[in-house]
Amino acid sequence: MKVLVPVKEIATVEDEFEIDGTAIDERFLGADLNEWDDYAIEEAVQLQEDGVVDEVVTVTIGDEDTEQTIRQALAKGADRAIRVWDDALEDLDLLDVGAKVAILEQVVADEEPDLVLTGVQSGDDSFGATGVALAEAVGYQWAAVVNQLDLDGDTASVHRELEGGIEELTDVEVPAVLTIQTGINEPRYASLRGIRMAQRKDLDHQTLADLDVDPEAIAGDLNLTAMYEPESESDTTVFEGSADDTAGQLADLLRDAGVAQ
Protein backbone atom coordinates (compact mmCIF):
# COMPACT_ATOMS: atom_id res chain seq x y z
CA MET A 1 0.00 0.00 0.00
CA LYS A 2 1.24 3.44 -0.90
CA VAL A 3 0.47 6.68 0.97
CA LEU A 4 0.76 10.15 -0.50
CA VAL A 5 1.06 12.99 2.00
CA PRO A 6 0.51 16.50 0.64
CA VAL A 7 2.65 18.67 2.90
CA LYS A 8 2.58 22.44 3.01
CA GLU A 9 5.20 24.85 4.18
CA ILE A 10 3.28 27.65 5.83
CA ALA A 11 4.22 31.24 6.47
CA THR A 12 4.43 32.18 10.14
CA VAL A 13 4.05 35.73 11.40
CA GLU A 14 5.91 37.37 14.26
CA ASP A 15 3.96 38.89 17.17
CA GLU A 16 4.63 42.39 15.86
CA PHE A 17 4.34 42.81 12.11
CA GLU A 18 3.56 45.21 9.30
CA ILE A 19 1.38 44.72 6.25
CA ASP A 20 2.67 45.52 2.80
CA GLY A 21 -0.20 45.71 0.29
CA THR A 22 -2.09 42.43 0.41
CA ALA A 23 0.61 40.50 2.24
CA ILE A 24 2.56 40.53 5.49
CA ASP A 25 5.83 42.39 5.04
CA GLU A 26 8.48 39.71 4.39
CA ARG A 27 10.64 40.94 7.23
CA PHE A 28 8.09 39.59 9.70
CA LEU A 29 7.55 36.21 8.08
CA GLY A 30 9.04 32.86 8.89
CA ALA A 31 8.40 29.39 7.50
CA ASP A 32 7.38 26.15 9.11
CA LEU A 33 5.99 22.72 8.38
CA ASN A 34 2.20 23.00 8.63
CA GLU A 35 1.21 21.62 12.02
CA TRP A 36 -1.70 19.51 10.72
CA ASP A 37 0.50 17.97 8.02
CA ASP A 38 3.01 16.99 10.70
CA TYR A 39 0.32 14.72 12.17
CA ALA A 40 -0.48 13.36 8.70
CA ILE A 41 3.17 12.46 8.14
CA GLU A 42 3.32 10.75 11.53
CA GLU A 43 0.17 8.75 10.78
CA ALA A 44 1.62 7.59 7.44
CA VAL A 45 4.98 6.68 8.97
CA GLN A 46 3.29 4.73 11.78
CA LEU A 47 1.28 2.77 9.21
CA GLN A 48 4.54 1.95 7.50
CA GLU A 49 6.16 0.87 10.76
CA ASP A 50 3.14 -1.36 11.38
CA GLY A 51 3.79 -3.04 8.04
CA VAL A 52 0.48 -1.91 6.52
CA VAL A 53 2.10 0.57 4.17
CA ASP A 54 5.09 0.01 1.87
CA GLU A 55 5.88 3.51 0.76
CA VAL A 56 5.26 7.07 2.01
CA VAL A 57 5.64 9.83 -0.56
CA THR A 58 5.20 13.54 0.20
CA VAL A 59 4.21 16.24 -2.27
CA THR A 60 4.68 19.95 -1.69
CA ILE A 61 3.79 22.91 -3.84
CA GLY A 62 6.58 25.36 -3.16
CA ASP A 63 9.74 27.06 -4.35
CA GLU A 64 13.27 25.86 -3.67
CA ASP A 65 13.28 27.37 -0.17
CA THR A 66 10.64 24.86 0.91
CA GLU A 67 13.12 22.01 0.51
CA GLN A 68 14.25 22.52 4.08
CA THR A 69 10.72 21.81 5.28
CA ILE A 70 10.41 18.88 2.88
CA ARG A 71 13.63 17.40 4.29
CA GLN A 72 12.00 17.57 7.73
CA ALA A 73 9.23 15.31 6.47
CA LEU A 74 11.80 12.96 4.97
CA ALA A 75 13.78 12.97 8.21
CA LYS A 76 10.63 11.91 10.07
CA GLY A 77 10.36 8.86 7.86
CA ALA A 78 8.80 9.63 4.48
CA ASP A 79 10.60 7.68 1.73
CA ARG A 80 10.74 10.28 -1.00
CA ALA A 81 9.34 13.67 -1.91
CA ILE A 82 7.95 15.54 -4.87
CA ARG A 83 8.18 19.30 -5.05
CA VAL A 84 6.05 21.10 -7.61
CA TRP A 85 7.07 24.57 -8.64
CA ASP A 86 6.88 26.66 -11.71
CA ASP A 87 7.56 30.24 -12.77
CA ALA A 88 3.83 30.48 -13.43
CA LEU A 89 3.19 30.04 -9.69
CA GLU A 90 5.64 32.76 -8.68
CA ASP A 91 3.32 35.70 -9.28
CA LEU A 92 0.16 34.36 -7.69
CA ASP A 93 -0.72 35.95 -4.36
CA LEU A 94 -3.24 33.25 -3.58
CA LEU A 95 -3.18 29.63 -4.67
CA ASP A 96 -6.82 28.75 -4.19
CA VAL A 97 -8.34 25.33 -3.58
CA GLY A 98 -9.09 24.74 -7.25
CA ALA A 99 -5.52 25.53 -8.24
CA LYS A 100 -4.01 23.23 -5.63
CA VAL A 101 -6.34 20.45 -6.70
CA ALA A 102 -5.45 20.97 -10.39
CA ILE A 103 -1.83 20.27 -9.46
CA LEU A 104 -2.32 17.54 -6.87
CA GLU A 105 -4.73 15.52 -9.00
CA GLN A 106 -1.97 15.05 -11.56
CA VAL A 107 0.39 13.87 -8.83
CA VAL A 108 -2.24 11.40 -7.65
CA ALA A 109 -2.68 10.21 -11.24
CA ASP A 110 1.08 9.60 -11.53
CA GLU A 111 1.60 8.01 -8.13
CA GLU A 112 -1.67 6.10 -7.76
CA PRO A 113 -1.58 6.03 -3.95
CA ASP A 114 -4.04 3.89 -2.00
CA LEU A 115 -4.35 6.50 0.68
CA VAL A 116 -3.82 10.25 0.73
CA LEU A 117 -3.30 11.68 4.21
CA THR A 118 -3.10 15.43 4.62
CA GLY A 119 -3.74 18.02 7.29
CA VAL A 120 -7.28 19.27 7.96
CA GLN A 121 -6.15 22.80 7.15
CA SER A 122 -3.09 24.98 6.90
CA GLY A 123 -2.11 27.42 9.59
CA ASP A 124 -1.77 30.40 7.26
CA ASP A 125 -4.66 30.72 4.81
CA SER A 126 -6.78 28.01 6.47
CA PHE A 127 -9.11 27.08 3.63
CA GLY A 128 -9.53 23.58 5.04
CA ALA A 129 -10.87 22.26 1.75
CA THR A 130 -8.03 20.85 -0.34
CA GLY A 131 -8.26 17.23 0.84
CA VAL A 132 -11.97 16.73 0.16
CA ALA A 133 -11.83 18.66 -3.12
CA LEU A 134 -8.91 16.51 -4.23
CA ALA A 135 -10.77 13.32 -3.36
CA GLU A 136 -13.69 14.33 -5.53
CA ALA A 137 -11.40 15.34 -8.40
CA VAL A 138 -9.60 11.97 -8.47
CA GLY A 139 -12.66 9.85 -7.70
CA TYR A 140 -11.44 8.65 -4.28
CA GLN A 141 -13.58 8.32 -1.18
CA TRP A 142 -12.81 10.66 1.69
CA ALA A 143 -13.31 11.68 5.30
CA ALA A 144 -12.65 15.11 6.77
CA VAL A 145 -11.26 15.85 10.25
CA VAL A 146 -10.10 12.39 11.21
CA ASN A 147 -8.69 11.86 14.71
CA GLN A 148 -8.52 8.07 14.74
CA LEU A 149 -7.69 5.69 11.90
CA ASP A 150 -7.75 1.90 11.67
CA LEU A 151 -7.08 0.20 8.36
CA ASP A 152 -8.61 -3.19 7.73
CA GLY A 153 -8.15 -4.40 4.19
CA ASP A 154 -9.95 -2.01 1.88
CA THR A 155 -11.80 -0.26 4.68
CA ALA A 156 -10.57 2.66 6.71
CA SER A 157 -12.48 2.89 9.98
CA VAL A 158 -12.15 6.45 11.17
CA HIS A 159 -13.36 8.75 13.88
CA ARG A 160 -14.31 12.21 12.64
CA GLU A 161 -14.05 14.91 15.26
CA LEU A 162 -17.32 16.84 15.19
CA GLU A 163 -18.03 19.92 17.28
CA GLY A 164 -18.83 19.72 20.97
CA GLY A 165 -16.87 16.63 22.01
CA ILE A 166 -18.74 14.28 19.67
CA GLU A 167 -17.00 11.90 17.29
CA GLU A 168 -18.62 10.32 14.27
CA LEU A 169 -17.56 6.75 13.51
CA THR A 170 -17.35 6.16 9.78
CA ASP A 171 -16.16 3.39 7.49
CA VAL A 172 -14.60 4.62 4.25
CA GLU A 173 -13.63 2.52 1.28
CA VAL A 174 -10.02 2.76 0.11
CA PRO A 175 -8.63 4.41 -2.02
CA ALA A 176 -9.44 7.46 0.04
CA VAL A 177 -8.27 10.89 1.06
CA LEU A 178 -8.36 11.47 4.81
CA THR A 179 -7.78 14.89 6.33
CA ILE A 180 -5.93 14.50 9.60
CA GLN A 181 -6.71 16.44 12.76
CA THR A 182 -4.12 17.39 15.36
CA GLY A 183 -3.99 15.08 18.36
CA ILE A 184 -4.47 11.87 16.34
CA ASN A 185 -0.92 10.86 17.31
CA GLU A 186 2.25 12.32 18.75
CA PRO A 187 4.40 13.59 15.89
CA ARG A 188 8.02 12.54 16.40
CA TYR A 189 11.05 14.73 16.30
CA ALA A 190 13.43 13.75 13.55
CA SER A 191 16.35 11.71 14.86
CA LEU A 192 19.93 12.59 13.89
CA ARG A 193 20.03 9.43 11.87
CA GLY A 194 16.76 10.43 10.21
CA ILE A 195 18.14 13.84 9.34
CA ARG A 196 21.28 12.28 7.83
CA MET A 197 19.25 9.78 5.82
CA ALA A 198 16.89 12.51 4.59
CA GLN A 199 19.75 14.17 2.76
CA ARG A 200 20.10 11.12 0.54
CA LYS A 201 16.42 10.57 -0.13
CA ASP A 202 14.92 11.38 -3.49
CA LEU A 203 13.42 14.88 -3.76
CA ASP A 204 12.06 15.27 -7.24
CA HIS A 205 11.24 18.68 -8.70
CA GLN A 206 8.36 18.84 -11.18
CA THR A 207 7.06 21.74 -13.23
CA LEU A 208 3.47 22.24 -14.35
CA ALA A 209 4.48 21.03 -17.80
CA ASP A 210 6.06 17.89 -16.31
CA LEU A 211 2.75 17.13 -14.63
CA ASP A 212 0.67 18.13 -17.61
CA VAL A 213 -1.17 20.81 -15.62
CA ASP A 214 -2.95 23.45 -17.66
CA PRO A 215 -1.50 26.85 -16.59
CA GLU A 216 -5.01 28.31 -17.00
CA ALA A 217 -6.26 26.03 -14.24
CA ILE A 218 -4.03 27.58 -11.59
CA ALA A 219 -5.03 31.20 -12.17
CA GLY A 220 -8.14 30.79 -10.04
CA ASP A 221 -11.14 33.10 -9.63
CA LEU A 222 -10.22 34.38 -6.17
CA ASN A 223 -8.36 37.65 -5.83
CA LEU A 224 -7.00 38.88 -2.55
CA THR A 225 -7.80 42.59 -2.60
CA ALA A 226 -7.04 43.76 0.93
CA MET A 227 -5.31 42.73 4.13
CA TYR A 228 -5.59 44.62 7.38
CA GLU A 229 -5.39 44.14 11.11
CA PRO A 230 -8.83 43.45 12.56
CA GLU A 231 -10.37 46.44 14.22
CA SER A 232 -10.43 46.08 17.92
CA GLU A 233 -14.04 46.18 19.05
CA SER A 234 -13.27 45.55 22.65
CA ASP A 235 -12.70 47.91 25.53
CA THR A 236 -10.13 45.77 27.26
CA THR A 237 -8.76 47.13 30.51
CA VAL A 238 -5.03 46.51 30.51
CA PHE A 239 -3.43 46.11 33.95
CA GLU A 240 -0.15 47.99 33.95
CA GLY A 241 2.97 47.64 36.04
CA SER A 242 5.27 44.91 37.31
CA ALA A 243 4.13 41.31 37.66
CA ASP A 244 3.44 41.97 41.35
CA ASP A 245 1.35 45.01 40.50
CA THR A 246 -0.70 43.30 37.80
CA ALA A 247 -1.17 40.18 39.92
CA GLY A 248 -2.40 42.41 42.75
CA GLN A 249 -4.94 44.11 40.50
CA LEU A 250 -6.15 40.76 39.20
CA ALA A 251 -6.43 39.44 42.77
CA ASP A 252 -8.62 42.43 43.68
CA LEU A 253 -10.78 41.78 40.64
CA LEU A 254 -11.26 38.12 41.57
CA ARG A 255 -12.13 38.99 45.17
CA ASP A 256 -14.56 41.70 44.07
CA ALA A 257 -16.24 39.25 41.69
CA GLY A 258 -16.60 36.89 44.65
CA VAL A 259 -15.00 33.94 42.87
CA ALA A 260 -11.89 33.75 45.04
CA GLN A 261 -10.89 34.73 48.58
Partner: peptide, 14 residues
Protein backbone atom coordinates in the same frame (compact mmCIF):
# COMPACT_ATOMS: atom_id res chain seq x y z
CA UNK B 1 -9.13 35.72 8.44
CA UNK B 2 -5.59 34.52 7.89
CA UNK B 3 -2.70 33.54 10.15
CA UNK B 4 -4.95 32.40 12.96
CA UNK B 5 -6.90 35.65 13.10
CA UNK B 6 -3.92 38.00 13.11
CA UNK B 7 -5.17 39.64 9.92
CA UNK B 8 -8.39 39.94 7.97
CA UNK B 9 -8.51 39.85 4.20
CA UNK B 10 -11.03 40.62 1.53
CA UNK B 11 -11.24 38.23 -1.37
CA UNK B 12 -13.11 39.08 -4.55
CA UNK B 13 -14.57 36.29 -6.60
CA UNK B 14 -15.16 36.98 -10.23
Amino acid sequence: EMYGGKVETTTEVE
